[in-house]
Amino acid sequence: MNIFRFAGDMTHLASVLVLLLKIHTIKSCAGISLKTQELYALVFATRYLDLFTDYISLYNTLMKLIFLGSSFSIVWYIRYHKIVRRSYDKDQDTFRHYFLVLPCLLLALLINEKFTFREVMWTFSLYLEAVAILPQLVLLQRTRNIDNLTGQYVFLLGAYRALYILNWIYRYFTEPHYVHWITWISGLVQTLLYADFFYYYFQSWKNNVKLELPA
């Protein structure tokens, strides 16, 4: 474990907590894409298949349970909670996320480190996570006004993967044979997808104006 990865995990945890806080306290999911939340639940479900078979550390197991539990409960809240679901904007959240799942699955079957079920599922979760934010970014473009919590949520979600890139660089230089091209490239693509959001997020923060994404 290194400081970059720990900071990345804490940032990722913070993003999930910000979202749960928003949904649980103000009972609203305005501006939140259910599609992205469903994709993230699928990412964790396919990535943590080793939850009960490989014990790495208490930290690792605990964080996996938190990410699994929070992502599925967020999907539940937006889909079934009688108050929260009313604020879900299904007419705007129209990204066809199945068009993301299938290509990622095919790509995972073609490009992976080892053609085993677990490894293909794990690779699929990496490719899917890289694009899972797209429905959310599209929704932000449409719903002009982005409230603070939603903006912070997306920012933290992007920042965690950027910190992971620093972690990979650190591990590459400190651990012999630590080479994982698939992880690195999908992590880089994921972070780049946030690039324009980061730009507008910092602009709004610097000029102290409301966050607005260009149409």
Partner: peptide
């Protein structure tokens, strides 16, 4: 055989 590279990252 190569040591099973355990996925230690989240």
């Amino acid at each position: 055989s190569e040591e099973e590279d355990v996925k230690d990252e989240l």
